[in-house]
């Protein structure tokens, strides 16, 4: 089975974010980066399928030069090779344009299975998987926790709200959006890290993808990302800061005598 895993690099989870002066994004230069959480689980699911049924796992990531670091982590964990759409020159935040680019790269590979994460922790769209499925003409399902092969296709367990699940059967090729927590993640081994050095990271340009610059231009989008801002507080919490001992005493007193919760 040939599996493509889409991987986005995002700011590390605890990042302190500073909004740029034009209020359109955050300052990126001071941030540290990591593989998006659910994408790590997508990669894990792909590696397990390959180990069980044979085949190949190909990582696909779009982003500037820095994403190569994350790609290498994937290669060290056992991914065979990677495709990198280098977008130093045309960053877009429109999920439909993003998906158009990713779809063009995926089409050239004709995989049996495409896995994406459920949602990217930065923009949080949660849209790329289902959009890709439409662009690629593949059946899909999302919020997937488990995948097994079944007669000619795959059977997956997907999450519903409130602790309920659903089994769904899909023919191959198909696309799945993977939910975090679906498997224990592996660590890269020393041997894996050594082997990764020899693995291919193929760089893809717009021309390689057969796309023209105006096709990936955000300003032609009918969706406008106008401005970003720190949300206004709706409820006023009483905030304690300072010496832990003093705060703790104050808080305990409030809980007992004001909130009366014990």
């Amino acid at each position: 089975m040939k599996i493509i895993v889409c991987m986005k690099q995002v700011p590390v989870q605890d990042s302190l974010l500073k909004i740029t002066d034009d209020n359109t994004w955050v300052h990126e230069d001071e941030l540290n980066w990591e593989i998006n959480e659910s994408d790590n689980y997508a990669m894990e699911a792909a590696l397990r399928l390959k180990e069980e049924h044979g085949g190949e796992v190909v990582l696909l990531s779009m982003g500037p030069d820095r994403v190569k670091e994350s790609i290498k982590q994937g290669l060290a964990k056992g991914v065979e090779r990677a495709l990198h759409i280098n977008n130093e020159d045309f960053t877009t935040r429109d999920p439909f344009i993003n998906a158009k680019l990713l779809a063009a790269a995926i089409k050239q590979e004709s995989p049996d299975l495409v896995l994406t994460g459920l949602q990217a922790d930065d923009t949080g769209f949660g849209q790329t998987g289902p959009i890709l499925a439409e662009y690629l003409g593949l059946p899909h399902t999302s919020i997937v926790m488990e995948i097994e092969k079944s007669n000619g296709g795959i059977k997956v367990k997907r999450e519903l709200e409130g602790g309920w699940f659903q089994s769904v059967e899909l023919p191959l090729p198909a696309l799945l959006s993977i939910q975090s927590g679906s498997n224990q993640l592996r660590y890269a081994t020393i041997k894996g890290i050594m082997m990764a050095k020899k693995k291919e990271i193929k760089s893809l340009t717009l021309a390689d993808l057969g796309l023209a610059e105006d096709e990936v231009d955000d300003s032609n989008s009918s969706l406008n990302f106008n401005r970003i801002f720190i949300p206004e507080k709706t409820k006023k919490a009483e905030i304690f800061e300072g010496d832990p001992k003093e705060i703790a005493a104050k808080l305990a007193d409030k809980l007992k005598n004001e909130a009366k919760v014990f």
Binding site: L17, I19, V26, N224, N226, F229
Partner: peptide, 8 residues
């Protein structure tokens, strides 16, 4: 952590 405004 951050809100964003969108228009069509």
């Amino acid at each position: 952590k951050i809100d964003a405004d969108f228009t069509f």
